[in-house]
Design a protein around this nucleic acid. Structure first.
Lengths: 213, 213
DNA sequence: TAGATTGTTAATCGATTAACAATC
DNA sequence: TAGATTGTTAATCGATTAACAATC
């Protein structure tokens, strides 16, 4: 009751699948398909119909017996479950190759995220413009964070300073860390949430699976 | 018996954790630590000691009762389980921002991978050199693959042509696909193995978790 | 109405954790 | 030897799948 979160916590795997469903529903919509059953969608995604229905029903009933799901209605419900519409703010730390590639390749707005700034420590690029964002000096990090209060930071910097900067960010209240560095982040503050994108781990896993036939 | 694979298939989660253990053991080695117990390592990684021992014991006993694990010995065993030493070959498809960022940021050799070529379709960059690799035209893909027989391909291209190129690669015998495009790849050939790096899904998941406190 | 397909409960499966005997 | 810590079995937990009554 009231404003507290009355929904039981849902597992991370469910949330990750919801983002897949969303992506797939967008494709269906683009193809002009307005209705889908859990069975058909399961075939398309390589899952079971049961799993899709279970996942959706942990947030409520979005379908209709005998008919299936309306693509548009389901899509908009998943969007609101994931909260894509209330924008969160993020700051990008590191404007090297990787940082710039992320700027160009990630549709932040579609993910419900507004980028509020880009920092780097390389003097020669401070003040230059990348994709409409002016690069600021990392020394001003604390100032920028206090001003714009981002909820998330994107770490696209070399390993050396990662832990220090991550702790600084969390202590400034930036609890979401999108970690692209090859460093295992263990942050002391339990409020911190780290989402790792470890390229090396991913490549090693693929290599292993391919090797097993 | 003989040369066939006598080991029971191990779950993907175990393999992914092995790569984490490996990374952690490297750090320990750099810090001059030569011995570690499952309990201490579990604390450092935020896992349980049981899980670490179970994971390792699905491949054999690498520890010593009453002592723990030798960092060096365990590291070299995990390397050989993952097969880091027998190099696999990969081809990079797409030399845009993302492709180039991967070239600079991923230590392929450390992942047991040799890059055999880089392809793109943009005429103006064909023949130019990026990080020691000469960019070749995507039209030559089939030729290059037949010559160098890569086991894996890295897809860092825009969504439009992804499915076509992925099917082409798989039909040429390149079964491992490291997919950086925002496309859900369902490949008809069951031998294909896709490892997705979906930036958007990852960001949406982080955003959701941060929103839940 | 009959057919289809959901929402939901129950059964199964697999992964994680706990416990402890073996042993260094 | 006593203490520590593994290897391994058994217990628990959670996630996936199956089944089916509800209902559009």
């Amino acid at each position: 009751m009231g404003t507290e979160n009355s929904r039981l916590a849902v597992s991370l795997s469910v949330v990750r699948r919801l983002t897949r469903y969303l992506r797939h529903l967008e494709e269906l919509e683009n193809d002009g398909i307005s209705r889908i059953s859990s069975q058909v969608m399961a075939n398309q995604l390589g899952l079971t119909a049961s799993q899709i229905r279970q996942d959706l029903n942990s947030f409520g009933g979005f379908g209709q017996q005998g008919y299936g799901y309306s693509v548009e209605y389901l899509k908009s419900n998943i969007e609101s479950i994931l909260g894509i519409n209330q924008k969160s703010r993020a700051i990008l730390i590191g404007a090297g190759n990787l940082g710039r590639a992320l700027l160009k390749n990630v549709d932040f707005s579609k993910c419900g995220v507004t980028l509020i700034g880009v920092c780097d420590c390389k003097e020669s690029i401070i003040g230059t413009n990348v994709d409409g964002m002016v690069i600021m000096h990392i020394d001003k990090l604390s100032e920028i964070v206090k001003l714009s209060k981002p909820q998330m930071a994107i770490l696209a910097i070399p390993p050396a300073s990662v832990r220090k900067i991550a702790e600084q960010l969390v202590s400034l209240g930036v609890y979401g860390i999108w970690n692209f560095t090859n460093v295992d982040l263990r942050i002391s503050d339990p409020k911190a949430i780290v989402e790792d994108v470890h390229f090396a781990d991913s490549l090693i896993t693929l290599r292993y699976r391919v090797g097993q036939q």
